[in-house]
């Protein structure tokens, strides 16, 4: 059973500190959901776990089954079992979906092992059908010209093929219509087992109708400020974040509240300048 352990994680981009002490433990078989207003550090946390080169950890640890994740390259993290369905996946024209996933699967094998092409094609086609995607998907270029919803499904398709032990799904529900949400939700839910720990980053409760969560966390100001059960999420869905901010005595929930505020000021001034 996999265990991802995040301890007192601080991280910055350029000179801006975004994560300010995140603590979280995810075990195989568990599903965690992280919510939180815009700009509070949720995607940053996901990027730091995966190892995006722009983010730098200044303090704290991440371990996967005791191994130091922060010491690993991005690809080594993936091969160790981490998976991140990204909020905005890249487009890679010229590289087909099927070549990409094939290479990713091959990368998990030993040097002298070979991926069975026949089994691969069968599994890929099966996943395409289960996610109700277009049959020409294997031959289309990776996310190139995909609609928002198609990109999300394609992330889940890769997850199905790569079978991670810890998967982070960053807003997998946004941009999906009701039917697509159901398809994606059911596909993820079907993958649940003791061998998979899930972290869902979301703004809405409805995804949990398909993928029930055991733990719900709220992120503000670059850390987890409250943890609870689905009741917590239900209340936020119904009432918003104000009650929680009052309870926690938080005025501005964003990571860099003042920066953002001054940017808005600048924006207003600039507009006024333009009007003169």
């Amino acid at each position: 059973m996999a265990i991802l352990k995040i301890t007192d994680l601080h991280a910055k981009v350029d000179d801006k500190i975004i994560l300010k002490g995140v603590n979280l433990i995810i075990k195989g078989g568990e599903t965690h959901a992280i919510m939180g207003p815009n700009g509070t550090g949720k995607s940053t946390l996901a990027s730091v776990i995966m190892g995006h080169p722009r983010y730098h950890v200044t303090q704290g640890q991440i371990t996967l089954d005791g191994q130091d994740v922060l010491e690993m390259s991005v690809d080594a993290r993936a091969r160790a079992g981490l998976f991140l369905a990204m909020q905005s996946p890249s487009e890679v024209p010229g590289v087909t979906n099927s070549d990409f996933v094939k290479t990713a699967m091959q990368s998990r094998l030993e040097k002298d092992e070979n991926l069975s092409l026949f089994k691969f094609i069968r599994a890929f086609d099966h996943a395409v059908t289960e996610l109700q995607m277009q049959p020409d998907l294997p031959h289309r270029y990776l996310n190139d010209g995909f609609s928002g919803g198609e990109k999300k499904r394609n992330e889940i398709l890769q997850m199905k093929m790569l079978k991670p032990t810890i998967a982070i799904l960053d807003e997998i529900d946004s941009g999906l219509d009701v039917d697509a949400l159901k398809i994606v939700g059911e596909n993820v839910s079907k993958m649940k087992s003791n061998a998979l720990g899930l972290l869902l980053i979301t703004h809405y409760q409805r995804i949990l109708d398909y993928i029930p969560a055991d733990h719900v966390h709220v992120m503000m100001q670059g850390r987890i400020v409250k943890s609870g059960t689905t009741d917590l999420m239900k209340r936020i869905d119904a009432e918003g974040y104000d009650w929680l901010k009052t309870e926690l005595n938080i005025e501005d929930e964003r990571v860099n509240g003042e920066d953002d505020a001054s940017r808005i000021m600048l924006g207003t001034c600039a507009t006024k300048e333009a009007l003169k």
Binding site: M50, S73, D75, A78, F83, V92, F100, A104, M105, Q158
Partner: peptide, 14 residues
């Protein structure tokens, strides 16, 4: 670099 990061996040070496 974003493309490379995306591809590496699925296990491909650089």
């Amino acid at each position: 670099e974003e493309q490379l990061y995306y591809m590496m996040s699925r296990g491909l070496t650089r």
